[in-house]
Design a protein around this nucleic acid. Sequence first.
DNA 1: ATATCATGGACTTCGTGACTCCACAATATG
DNA 2: CATATTGTGGAGTCACGAAGTCCATGATAT
Lengths: 142, 142
Amino acid sequence: MQVTKTLDYAVRSLTYMGNQPVEKHSMKEISHEQHIPLNYLAKIMRRLVKKGLVRSTLGPDGGYTLRKLPNEINLRDVYEAIEGEIRMVDCMDKDTVCALYEACPQLPVWDRIQLSMVKILEDTTLEDMLKERKTLKMNQVN
Amino acid sequence: MQVTKTLDYAVRSLTYMGNQPVEKHSMKEISHEQHIPLNYLAKIMRRLVKKGLVRSTLGPDGGYTLRKLPNEINLRDVYEAIEGEIRMVDCMDKDTVCALYEACPQLPVWDRIQLSMVKILEDTTLEDMLKERKTLKMNQVN
DNA sequence: ATATCATGGACTTCGTGACTCCACAATATG
DNA sequence: CATATTGTGGAGTCACGAAGTCCATGATAT
Protein backbone atom coordinates (compact mmCIF):
# COMPACT_ATOMS: atom_id res chain seq x y z
CA MET A 1 0.00 0.00 0.00
CA GLN A 2 2.96 2.26 -0.63
CA VAL A 3 3.96 4.55 -3.45
CA THR A 4 7.11 3.13 -5.02
CA LYS A 5 10.19 5.20 -5.71
CA THR A 6 9.76 4.41 -9.38
CA LEU A 7 6.33 6.01 -9.46
CA ASP A 8 7.67 8.99 -7.54
CA TYR A 9 10.46 9.37 -10.10
CA ALA A 10 7.98 9.23 -12.97
CA VAL A 11 5.70 11.85 -11.45
CA ARG A 12 8.61 14.10 -10.63
CA SER A 13 10.01 13.83 -14.15
CA LEU A 14 6.66 14.67 -15.71
CA THR A 15 5.82 17.56 -13.42
CA TYR A 16 9.32 18.90 -13.98
CA MET A 17 8.85 18.78 -17.72
CA GLY A 18 5.42 20.33 -17.47
CA ASN A 19 6.75 23.17 -15.38
CA GLN A 20 9.55 24.26 -17.73
CA PRO A 21 9.05 26.75 -20.56
CA VAL A 22 11.16 24.60 -22.87
CA GLU A 23 9.61 21.59 -24.53
CA LYS A 24 12.46 19.16 -24.89
CA HIS A 25 14.44 17.70 -22.01
CA SER A 26 17.33 15.27 -22.14
CA MET A 27 17.62 12.38 -19.71
CA LYS A 28 20.76 13.97 -18.34
CA GLU A 29 18.92 17.16 -17.56
CA ILE A 30 16.00 15.44 -15.84
CA SER A 31 18.31 13.08 -14.01
CA HIS A 32 20.42 15.93 -12.73
CA GLU A 33 17.60 18.32 -11.86
CA GLN A 34 15.46 15.73 -10.13
CA HIS A 35 18.25 13.64 -8.60
CA ILE A 36 17.25 10.42 -10.31
CA PRO A 37 19.89 7.82 -11.24
CA LEU A 38 20.44 8.23 -14.99
CA ASN A 39 20.33 4.57 -15.95
CA TYR A 40 17.28 3.94 -13.87
CA LEU A 41 15.52 6.96 -15.30
CA ALA A 42 16.08 5.43 -18.73
CA LYS A 43 13.91 2.47 -17.81
CA ILE A 44 11.20 4.68 -16.42
CA MET A 45 11.09 6.95 -19.45
CA ARG A 46 10.65 4.01 -21.76
CA ARG A 47 7.45 3.03 -20.00
CA LEU A 48 6.16 6.58 -20.31
CA VAL A 49 7.04 6.54 -23.99
CA LYS A 50 5.32 3.18 -24.49
CA LYS A 51 2.17 4.50 -22.83
CA GLY A 52 2.22 7.51 -25.11
CA LEU A 53 2.63 10.10 -22.39
CA VAL A 54 5.95 11.26 -23.75
CA ARG A 55 7.67 11.44 -27.14
CA SER A 56 11.37 10.73 -27.54
CA THR A 57 13.82 11.96 -30.13
CA LEU A 58 17.21 10.40 -30.75
CA GLY A 59 20.57 11.82 -31.64
CA PRO A 60 22.32 14.94 -30.36
CA ASP A 61 19.87 17.50 -29.02
CA GLY A 62 17.44 14.61 -28.55
CA GLY A 63 15.33 14.13 -25.45
CA TYR A 64 11.76 13.85 -24.24
CA THR A 65 8.66 15.96 -24.80
CA LEU A 66 5.22 15.74 -23.23
CA ARG A 67 2.73 14.48 -25.79
CA LYS A 68 -0.20 16.25 -24.16
CA LEU A 69 -0.71 19.40 -22.17
CA PRO A 70 -0.18 19.16 -18.40
CA ASN A 71 -3.92 19.49 -17.86
CA GLU A 72 -4.54 16.53 -20.15
CA ILE A 73 -2.29 14.09 -18.30
CA ASN A 74 -3.82 12.66 -15.16
CA LEU A 75 -2.16 10.62 -12.45
CA ARG A 76 -4.01 7.46 -13.31
CA ASP A 77 -2.25 7.39 -16.68
CA VAL A 78 1.09 7.80 -14.97
CA TYR A 79 0.30 5.21 -12.32
CA GLU A 80 -0.75 2.62 -14.88
CA ALA A 81 2.23 3.34 -17.11
CA ILE A 82 4.53 2.49 -14.22
CA GLU A 83 2.68 -0.07 -12.12
CA GLY A 84 0.27 -1.58 -14.61
CA GLU A 85 -3.42 -1.95 -13.95
CA ILE A 86 -4.58 -0.75 -10.55
CA ARG A 87 -5.69 -3.69 -8.45
CA MET A 88 -5.90 -3.78 -4.65
CA VAL A 89 -6.28 -7.56 -4.41
CA ASP A 90 -5.37 -10.30 -6.84
CA CYS A 91 -8.85 -11.78 -6.81
CA MET A 92 -10.07 -8.63 -8.54
CA ASP A 93 -8.28 -9.95 -11.60
CA LYS A 94 -10.89 -11.55 -13.81
CA ASP A 95 -8.48 -14.33 -14.74
CA THR A 96 -8.03 -15.33 -11.12
CA VAL A 97 -10.45 -17.80 -9.63
CA CYS A 98 -11.43 -17.51 -5.97
CA ALA A 99 -13.86 -19.98 -4.48
CA LEU A 100 -15.14 -17.38 -2.03
CA TYR A 101 -15.62 -14.69 -4.62
CA GLU A 102 -19.40 -14.56 -4.50
CA ALA A 103 -19.62 -14.43 -0.73
CA CYS A 104 -16.31 -12.78 0.13
CA PRO A 105 -16.85 -10.29 2.97
CA GLN A 106 -13.74 -8.26 2.20
CA LEU A 107 -14.03 -7.69 -1.50
CA PRO A 108 -16.56 -4.84 -1.35
CA VAL A 109 -14.30 -2.90 1.01
CA TRP A 110 -11.15 -3.18 -1.11
CA ASP A 111 -13.26 -2.37 -4.11
CA ARG A 112 -14.58 0.80 -2.49
CA ILE A 113 -11.08 1.88 -1.57
CA GLN A 114 -9.79 1.15 -5.04
CA LEU A 115 -12.60 3.09 -6.67
CA SER A 116 -12.02 6.13 -4.50
CA MET A 117 -8.31 5.96 -5.19
CA VAL A 118 -8.80 5.69 -8.94
CA LYS A 119 -11.20 8.61 -8.86
CA ILE A 120 -8.71 10.85 -7.09
CA LEU A 121 -5.94 9.80 -9.48
CA GLU A 122 -8.15 10.47 -12.48
CA ASP A 123 -9.22 13.83 -11.16
CA THR A 124 -5.67 15.00 -10.64
CA THR A 125 -3.68 16.29 -13.61
CA LEU A 126 -0.09 17.43 -13.79
CA GLU A 127 -1.37 20.97 -13.97
CA ASP A 128 -3.34 20.54 -10.76
CA MET A 129 -0.22 19.39 -8.99
CA LEU A 130 1.87 22.26 -10.31
CA LYS A 131 -0.75 24.82 -9.32
CA GLU A 132 -0.98 23.35 -5.87
CA ARG A 133 2.76 23.55 -5.56
CA LYS A 134 2.84 27.21 -6.52
CA THR A 135 0.19 27.98 -3.97
CA LEU A 136 2.24 26.21 -1.36
CA LYS A 137 5.29 28.21 -2.33
CA MET A 138 3.44 31.49 -2.08
CA ASN A 139 2.12 30.57 1.32
CA GLN A 140 5.63 29.82 2.35
CA VAL A 141 6.89 33.22 1.21
CA ASN A 142 4.20 35.22 2.98
CA MET B 1 -0.64 -0.71 -3.43
CA GLN B 2 -1.80 -4.25 -2.84
CA VAL B 3 -3.48 -6.03 0.02
CA THR B 4 -1.04 -8.61 1.37
CA LYS B 5 -2.00 -12.22 1.97
CA THR B 6 -1.17 -11.69 5.62
CA LEU B 7 -3.79 -8.96 5.94
CA ASP B 8 -6.27 -11.11 4.07
CA TYR B 9 -5.60 -13.99 6.50
CA ALA B 10 -6.10 -11.70 9.47
CA VAL B 11 -9.39 -10.32 8.19
CA ARG B 12 -10.63 -13.77 7.32
CA SER B 13 -9.73 -15.13 10.74
CA LEU B 14 -11.50 -12.31 12.51
CA THR B 15 -14.63 -12.35 10.39
CA TYR B 16 -14.75 -16.11 10.79
CA MET B 17 -14.59 -15.78 14.57
CA GLY B 18 -17.16 -13.02 14.55
CA ASN B 19 -19.52 -15.10 12.52
CA GLN B 20 -19.52 -18.20 14.74
CA PRO B 21 -21.87 -18.63 17.70
CA VAL B 22 -19.04 -20.04 19.82
CA GLU B 23 -16.61 -17.66 21.45
CA LYS B 24 -13.38 -19.59 21.53
CA HIS B 25 -11.53 -20.89 18.50
CA SER B 26 -8.28 -22.85 18.38
CA MET B 27 -5.61 -22.08 15.80
CA LYS B 28 -6.18 -25.52 14.33
CA GLU B 29 -9.84 -24.78 13.79
CA ILE B 30 -9.24 -21.39 12.16
CA SER B 31 -6.38 -22.74 10.10
CA HIS B 32 -8.49 -25.61 8.83
CA GLU B 33 -11.69 -23.69 8.22
CA GLN B 34 -10.03 -20.75 6.49
CA HIS B 35 -7.25 -22.67 4.73
CA ILE B 36 -4.44 -20.73 6.36
CA PRO B 37 -1.08 -22.43 7.04
CA LEU B 38 -1.07 -23.23 10.77
CA ASN B 39 2.41 -21.99 11.57
CA TYR B 40 1.88 -18.81 9.66
CA LEU B 41 -1.45 -18.19 11.32
CA ALA B 42 0.36 -18.37 14.64
CA LYS B 43 2.43 -15.33 13.74
CA ILE B 44 -0.60 -13.41 12.57
CA MET B 45 -2.61 -14.15 15.69
CA ARG B 46 0.28 -12.95 17.81
CA ARG B 47 -0.03 -9.48 16.29
CA LEU B 48 -3.77 -9.41 16.80
CA VAL B 49 -3.25 -10.38 20.43
CA LYS B 50 -0.61 -7.70 20.91
CA LYS B 51 -2.94 -5.07 19.49
CA GLY B 52 -5.67 -6.16 21.86
CA LEU B 53 -8.12 -7.29 19.22
CA VAL B 54 -8.07 -10.86 20.44
CA ARG B 55 -7.47 -12.67 23.72
CA SER B 56 -5.60 -15.96 23.89
CA THR B 57 -5.84 -18.81 26.41
CA LEU B 58 -3.24 -21.54 26.74
CA GLY B 59 -3.47 -25.24 27.47
CA PRO B 60 -5.91 -27.84 26.20
CA ASP B 61 -9.19 -26.27 25.15
CA GLY B 62 -7.29 -23.02 24.73
CA GLY B 63 -7.67 -20.70 21.74
CA TYR B 64 -8.63 -17.21 20.74
CA THR B 65 -11.58 -14.97 21.53
CA LEU B 66 -12.56 -11.58 20.13
CA ARG B 67 -12.03 -8.92 22.80
CA LYS B 68 -14.73 -6.67 21.38
CA LEU B 69 -17.98 -7.11 19.55
CA PRO B 70 -17.80 -7.39 15.75
CA ASN B 71 -19.33 -3.93 15.42
CA GLU B 72 -16.60 -2.49 17.63
CA ILE B 73 -13.67 -3.75 15.56
CA ASN B 74 -12.99 -1.73 12.45
CA LEU B 75 -10.69 -2.53 9.56
CA ARG B 76 -8.23 0.20 10.42
CA ASP B 77 -7.44 -1.57 13.68
CA VAL B 78 -6.84 -4.79 11.80
CA TYR B 79 -4.78 -3.12 9.11
CA GLU B 80 -2.54 -1.39 11.61
CA ALA B 81 -2.16 -4.52 13.71
CA ILE B 82 -0.78 -6.31 10.67
CA GLU B 83 0.96 -3.66 8.58
CA GLY B 84 1.73 -0.99 11.14
CA GLU B 85 0.88 2.66 10.70
CA ILE B 86 -0.81 3.50 7.38
CA ARG B 87 1.51 5.57 5.24
CA MET B 88 1.32 5.93 1.45
CA VAL B 89 4.75 7.52 1.09
CA ASP B 90 7.75 7.46 3.38
CA CYS B 91 8.05 11.24 3.48
CA MET B 92 4.76 11.32 5.37
CA ASP B 93 6.74 9.95 8.29
CA LYS B 94 7.50 12.84 10.59
CA ASP B 95 10.96 11.45 11.30
CA THR B 96 11.87 11.48 7.61
CA VAL B 97 13.35 14.62 6.17
CA CYS B 98 12.58 15.58 2.57
CA ALA B 99 14.06 18.73 1.10
CA LEU B 100 11.09 19.20 -1.17
CA TYR B 101 8.51 18.69 1.52
CA GLU B 102 7.17 22.25 1.58
CA ALA B 103 6.79 22.52 -2.18
CA CYS B 104 6.23 18.88 -3.11
CA PRO B 105 3.56 18.68 -5.83
CA GLN B 106 2.69 15.06 -5.14
CA LEU B 107 2.25 15.01 -1.41
CA PRO B 108 -1.26 16.50 -1.33
CA VAL B 109 -2.49 13.82 -3.71
CA TRP B 110 -1.13 10.87 -1.79
CA ASP B 111 -2.40 12.47 1.35
CA ARG B 112 -5.91 12.76 -0.07
CA ILE B 113 -5.85 9.14 -1.14
CA GLN B 114 -4.56 8.02 2.23
CA LEU B 115 -7.22 10.00 4.08
CA SER B 116 -10.02 8.55 1.99
CA MET B 117 -8.64 5.07 2.48
CA VAL B 118 -8.33 5.48 6.24
CA LYS B 119 -11.88 6.81 6.40
CA ILE B 120 -13.28 3.80 4.59
CA LEU B 121 -11.28 1.42 6.77
CA GLU B 122 -12.44 3.18 9.92
CA ASP B 123 -16.04 3.17 8.80
CA THR B 124 -16.05 -0.55 8.12
CA THR B 125 -16.46 -2.96 11.03
CA LEU B 126 -16.37 -6.73 11.07
CA GLU B 127 -20.13 -6.66 11.46
CA ASP B 128 -20.52 -4.54 8.34
CA MET B 129 -18.54 -7.04 6.37
CA LEU B 130 -20.52 -9.99 7.68
CA LYS B 131 -23.82 -8.29 6.92
CA GLU B 132 -22.68 -7.47 3.44
CA ARG B 133 -21.68 -11.05 2.92
CA LYS B 134 -25.07 -12.32 3.99
CA THR B 135 -26.76 -9.95 1.60
CA LEU B 136 -24.56 -11.23 -1.16
CA LYS B 137 -25.40 -14.81 -0.27
CA MET B 138 -29.11 -14.13 -0.36
CA ASN B 139 -28.77 -12.46 -3.70
CA GLN B 140 -26.95 -15.51 -4.89
CA VAL B 141 -29.71 -17.82 -3.75
CA ASN B 142 -32.51 -15.85 -5.30
C1' DA C 1 32.84 10.67 -39.37
C1' DT C 2 31.93 11.39 -34.93
C1' DA C 3 29.95 12.81 -30.82
C1' DT C 4 25.57 12.72 -28.57
C1' DC C 5 21.44 11.15 -27.52
C1' DA C 6 17.84 7.13 -26.43
C1' DT C 7 16.97 1.87 -26.58
C1' DG C 8 16.83 -2.68 -24.81
C1' DG C 9 18.63 -6.42 -22.56
C1' DA C 10 21.29 -8.75 -18.98
C1' DC C 11 22.75 -8.58 -14.54
C1' DT C 12 23.23 -7.52 -9.33
C1' DT C 13 21.70 -6.31 -4.80
C1' DC C 14 18.68 -6.03 -1.07
C1' DG C 15 14.54 -6.14 1.42
C1' DT C 16 10.34 -8.32 2.45
C1' DG C 17 6.26 -11.31 2.08
C1' DA C 18 5.15 -15.85 2.95
C1' DC C 19 6.17 -19.30 4.76
C1' DT C 20 8.56 -23.59 7.99
C1' DC C 21 10.64 -25.61 12.18
C1' DC C 22 11.36 -26.18 16.81
C1' DA C 23 12.13 -25.62 21.69
C1' DC C 24 9.48 -23.71 25.35
C1' DA C 25 5.61 -22.19 28.48
C1' DA C 26 1.07 -22.61 30.24
C1' DT C 27 -2.79 -25.46 31.67
C1' DA C 28 -6.79 -28.81 31.65
C1' DT C 29 -7.67 -33.51 32.62
C1' DG C 30 -7.07 -38.20 34.29
C1' DC D 1 1.72 -35.41 39.45
C1' DA D 2 2.17 -36.74 34.45
C1' DT D 3 0.93 -35.98 30.09
C1' DA D 4 -1.31 -34.28 26.22
C1' DT D 5 -2.82 -30.09 24.24
C1' DT D 6 -2.71 -25.55 23.37
C1' DG D 7 -0.32 -20.92 22.22
C1' DT D 8 4.58 -18.32 22.28
C1' DG D 9 8.66 -16.63 20.24
C1' DG D 10 12.73 -16.87 17.80
C1' DA D 11 15.53 -18.42 13.92
C1' DG D 12 15.82 -19.80 9.44
C1' DT D 13 14.32 -20.61 4.29
C1' DC D 14 12.74 -19.30 -0.28
C1' DA D 15 11.10 -16.62 -4.00
C1' DC D 16 10.13 -12.42 -5.95
C1' DG D 17 10.22 -7.73 -7.02
C1' DA D 18 11.96 -2.96 -6.33
C1' DA D 19 15.89 -0.36 -7.25
C1' DG D 20 19.81 0.21 -9.55
C1' DT D 21 24.08 -0.83 -12.78
C1' DC D 22 26.39 -1.87 -17.20
C1' DC D 23 26.89 -2.17 -21.87
C1' DA D 24 26.27 -2.96 -26.74
C1' DT D 25 23.31 -1.08 -30.28
C1' DG D 26 20.65 2.30 -33.03
C1' DA D 27 19.45 6.90 -34.54
C1' DT D 28 20.78 11.59 -35.90
C1' DA D 29 22.57 16.47 -35.78
C1' DT D 30 26.85 18.83 -36.88
